[in-house]
Design a protein around this nucleic acid. Structure first.
Length: 656
DNA sequence: AAAAAAG
């Protein structure tokens, strides 16, 4: 009943730039967190509020929410901050996400905000955090404050799942701090700890933006003299990622190193695109149950990934067609009649080895790439942090470039003017697909999404990517070209021959296929790359994955799996890597494989993971946490226990 | 041996 009424109101009040509160399956899960709903401030029309009030379920609406940064003084925001926002950073109107989160967050309550990635999320938490720090220490507003900031008295901590994102948030925070004496520091892995520490000791630190590992390290190291005994605010950006397995232990231990809520009253803000069910209890342990709000935003120019960015499905005949297809996309963009906007693309792969291989190949297609004026960059976790940072910086500033990327950059990264997002192989899950597409079409620009799959992957993609406007695209010639077919156009022949030449000078990688894509991979290696043998699958792995008798498989070892002489990598950093986590130099051995994992067909039927086979490009097994959307989709069909009132829900289908 | 994140 209750939920049904919220649902109804939402449909009723949906209009132009209106903040929309959507009823979803998440809310029942989160209800236990919120003794009362205090959503009234989210309704931007009187009628909705009036209706809510009439039904006796909501408190009366106070004043209209502030939607311009310039008017934030109404909510007690310091003038210095407002000046930095409006004059320094040039912001005026808030985005919907900002309006919906800044208003309640300034009241000081904890918050779980579900907001899709896009511009503006960072400020949505920075503004309340900064104001909270200033409210507690008003003298910090004075840029010439005499007070000495200390690394042992950090007042706000912001955590991000990747180093680059932390740096990006840090840069934004520094702009906001400009007219004050608030000191913002970043602490991320892969950098020299001593150096960052000296800087912190010298300059002090009021607001720290960090990645979990490094923060944990700093807080637990007494020598580091980093502490936050009076912590006022704690933010998790991309909270669903942060509370995921692999991160959650780290987050827990960080929390243990911080003062408890009972000692020091702090504000916790969790920002997340999705909130998987198994993350709820952790979220619950982080917020104050009596002072908590859940804000869900659906922002009109935030649905863009689903609506604004056209997304093309390109089906390739074989793996050997993928790289030429990328060249063709590049070429078409550059020669189009209206190609006033330079081609700037991110090519996503689901594993590091594929990224490395692709960028090596593309660096070796000099005639084409040089002729196009496009720069090639690469980013993934096997590069040193220095290499990662420089790739990100160069790509950020480049006008025409291709960035080959793992999922490091899939979330939150703001590279300006990306025209195309190209995803190779099955994306790991729907969320990740959407996040990747979200790297383009930002800030009102247009963009294009491409999903490049082998035919065999399409059925799985169909079930993995429901409810997205992905349209089959047959306008390219390279995807269907069969090697040796002389009827191909000059352009297509050139794409293939350039790629083919590049293969020759790229060291042999180790490839491993899984079940139904074995043939695809075999064909690529044999026909296009000119290998004498099909790629080998080591016996153990073949056994583990139930591939021992899969058709077409070759059990054994590849040449590349034996140590290769050091030094082949000095042609470019892409060839060499330094594992900055283990500190091992792995340039002598491409032991990282060019593969992915998955179960063979015998895997469980539906549910847990009906992941069937994958390619080197494709996918890792889908995450076992159902995404928010997934659950939404899966519950929508049948009689949902909560009853969905008048809301007609349908099960999203794939559009292709 | 999925990416990411401490050394």
């Amino acid at each position: 009943m209750f939920r049904a009424s919220i649902q109804r109101q939402c449909e009723n009040t949906r209009s132009e730039h209106l903040a929309i509160l959507r009823q979803t399956p998440l809310q029942p899960a989160l209800r236990c967190l919120a003794p009362r709903y205090a959503f009234s401030h989210l309704y931007s029309t009187e009628s909705a509020a009036a209706q809510a009030n009439r039904e006796g379920e909501f408190a009366p609406v106070p004043s209209a929410p502030v939607t311009r940064f310039g008017e934030l003084s109404q909510l007690g925001v310091n003038d210095r901050l407002i000046e930095a926002l409006t004059r320094g950073m040039g912001y005026d109107a808030m985005t919907e996400v900002q309006a919906m989160t800044i208003n309640p967050a300034l009241k000081g309550s904890d918050m779980v905000a579900q907001a899709k990635t896009g511009t503006g999320k960072t400020l949505a938490f920075l503004v309340p955090v900064f104001q909270r720090v200033l409210t507690d220490q008003p003298d910090l507003a004075d840029p010439r404050a005499r007070r000495r900031s200390s690394s042992e008295d950090i007042r706000a901590i912001i955590l991000s799942p990747t180093r680059e994102l932390a740096e990006q948030i840090g840069a934004e925070a520094r702009k906001l701090a400009k007219n004050t004496s608030i000191v913002v520091q970043t602490a991320v892995g892969g950098t020299r700890k001593r150096e960052a520490l000296f800087k912190m000791w010298r300059e002090g630190c009021d607001i720290l933006v960090a990645t979990p590992g490094r923060l944990n390290d700093l807080l637990s190291d007494p020598e580091a003299k980093v502490a936050a005994p009076k912590l006022q605010a704690f933010v998790l950006d991309e909270a669903d990622r942060m509370l995921d397995v692999g991160f959650s232990d780290e987050i827990r231990s960080i929390q243990d190193l911080l003062p408890s809520h009972t000692q020091v009253e702090r504000q916790t803000l969790l920002f997340s695109a999705t909130i998987p069910r198994d993350v709820v209890h952790l979220a619950k342990s982080m917020v104050r149950p009596d002072n908590f709000e859940f804000v869900q935003t659906v922002k009109s120019d935030d649905v863009p990934t689903h609506e604004r960015v056209p997304q093309h499905l390109v089906t390739v005949q074989g793996f050997e067609n993928i790289f030429p297809t990328i060249l063709e996309i590049l070429h078409k963009a550059n020669t189009a009649q209206d190609s006033s906007v330079p081609f700037k693309a991110i090519v996503f792969f689901s594993n590091t080895a594929s990224v490395q291989f692709a960028s090596e190949v593309f660096r070796k297609t000099p005639a084409f790439i040089r002729g196009s004026g496009t720069h090639i960059y690469e980013i993934h976790s096997k590069l040193t942090q220095g290499q990662r940072t420089s790739s990100a910086d160069y790509f950020r500033r480049a006008s025409s470039a291709v960035l080959f990327s793992s999922d490091v950059t899939a979330r939150g990264m703001d590279f300006p003017n990306v025209t195309d997002v190209i995803q190779i192989g099955l994306p790991p899950d729907r969320d990740q697909y959407v996040h990747r597409v979200g790297r383009t079409g930002r800030a009102g620009n247009s963009g294009k999404g491409w999903l490049i799959l082998a035919e065999q992957e399409v059925p799985e993609a169909r079930s993995r990517l429901p409810g997205l406007p992905i349209k089959p695209n047959d306008t390219l010639e390279s995807p269907k070209h069969v090697l040796g077919d002389s009827s191909a156009s000059g352009d297509v022949s050139r794409f293939f021959s350039e790629v083919s030449n590049a293969y020759q000078s790229v060291p042999k990688s180790s490839f491993r296929a899984v079940s139904d894509v074995i043939t695809l991979l075999n064909n690529w290696c044999l026909r296009a790359m000119g290998w004498a043998e099909t790629p080998a699958v080591p016996p153990k792995i073949a056994q583990n994955r139930n591939l021992a008798r899969a058709p077409g498989i070759r059990i054994g070892f590849d040449v590349s799996e034996e140590p290769v002489e050091r030094g082949y990598g000095n042609r470019g950093y892409g060839n060499r890597g330094y594992d900055n986590r283990s500190g091992r130099d792995f340039s002598f051995k491409r032991d990282d494989g060019f593969e992915s994992r998955g179960r063979s067909e015998h895997s469980s039927p539906r549910g847990g993971g009906n992941f069937r086979g994958s390619t080197s490009f494709g996918a890792r097994a889908p995450s076992n946490r159902n995404s928010f959307e997934d659950r939404f989709a899966s519950r929508a069909g049948g009689g949902d226990r909560g009853g969905r009132g008048g809301g007609q829900r349908y099960t999203p289908r794939a559009s292709f």
